[in-house]
Amino acid sequence: MKEEFMRLITVLLITCCFVFFASLAFANEGTSTVVSVNGVDLTKAELDQEISKIVPMERSFHGGLSEEKQLEINKKGMETLINMELQYQDGLSKGQRLDKKALEREIDLLVAKFPMREAYLEAVEKAGFSEQTMERFVSRNIVSKNMKKFEVDDKVNVSDAMVVSYYEEKKASYMKPEEYRASIILVKVPPSALSEEREVFKKKADSVYQQLKTGADFADLAAKFSDDMSRIKGGDLGYFHAGQADDQDFDAQIQKLQVGEASSVIRSLKGFYIIKLTDKRPPRQLPFEEMKDKIRLLLVNAEKDRLYKLWIDGLRAKAKIIYPPEKKTDKGSKS
């Protein structure tokens, strides 16, 4: 966890040097207070670092962020910043702190990522930190994570009996539905094909079907004529259950077949296909031994969430959290 944190901080500092993330503050803005937690002022630079960690997870496939999403991320970043500060302060009150030598080692790990110490200090300044505030930032992140381990992770207790009890209570939901195994021969038709062209592909599919009816091997025909990737396995699609296929007609057709039976030529959005049902498995109860590890993980994570909320809610209930008043902008002033 510590190595991951150091790697992340280094990446963020380098990012600031190149002004990669547009919302990061300039150095003179980074020192402005965004919230005060029990008398400790937290800065925009610290908030920007927390926001930077969230953005990659929230960015859309196309890389954009809507204004609404950005506001949501900013809110999450602020909540994380406050929570980590509360965890840090709780740690300090309980004697958890990095001594001078330990802190120096952590900082040295950061400095070592840069060609020289001056480059590190420049990156720190561009991120909106001073050397001293960066040291506190590093200390807070490590101490708060250590406290989370002490107050949450180490207190989780999920017994074997709890796992068994959960399985028995939810047993009905641990059923595997009826499964099918099928093979396919697909004659793909381009979406832009005209009706005359589509008829040519239909005749090809009909020809394959006639060969199948006269005794040709399905797998051989799939390997020779199918446009589906499954052709390399003789058209075998493996096992699946109803509802998994993109094509609802495919589901409907497969349920009509007997094991060993092939369909006639079926038209679909992709083209024309023939399917053969090769096996069918009845619904079955998933045994406890097969599910116990997944259930344990589910219960452990749920207990961690409960303990963390209990801890943080307690800290927040006693905390004095003050947000500075928003600055009024003069519409007539030049930006």
Results as ranks from 00 to 15, higher is better:
E3Q: 12
E3S: 11
F5G: 01
R7Q: 10
I9F: 08
T10K: 02
L13V: 03
L13D: 00
I14R: 14
I14P: 00
T15W: 00
F18E: 10
F20K: 10
L24S: 06
A27H: 06
A27E: 05
A27N: 05
G30V: 03
T31F: 07
T31P: 01
T33W: 00
V34C: 02
V34P: 01
V37F: 00
G39H: 04
V40T: 09
I51E: 13
S52G: 15
K53P: 04
V55P: 02
P56K: 11
G63I: 10
L65H: 14
K69A: 15
M78D: 13
T80L: 15
L81I: 09
M84L: 13
Q89I: 05
G91R: 05
L98W: 11
E104N: 13
I107Y: 05
F114V: 04
P115I: 07
V124D: 01
E125S: 12
E125R: 15
K126L: 12
G128A: 03
S144W: 07
M147D: 07
M147I: 15
K149L: 10
D154Y: 04
D160K: 12
V164G: 05
S165Q: 15
E168W: 03
E169V: 02
A172H: 12
S173Y: 11
P177A: 09
R181M: 11
S183A: 13
S183R: 11
L186I: 00
P191F: 02
S192G: 01
E196Q: 05
V200R: 08
T214K: 05
G215C: 04
A216S: 07
D227E: 05
I232P: 00
K233N: 15
G238S: 05
Y239W: 14
G243Y: 06
A245S: 13
Q248A: 13
Q253A: 13
I254F: 11
L257K: 05
G260M: 01
A262K: 03
S264G: 15
S264A: 12
V265I: 06
I266V: 11
F272S: 06
P283F: 07
R284H: 11
Q285Y: 04
Q285C: 04
P287L: 09
F288N: 02
D293H: 06
K294A: 15
L298R: 14
L307P: 04
Y308T: 12
I312D: 06
R316G: 05
A317R: 02
Y323L: 14
K328F: 13
K328I: 07
S333G: 09
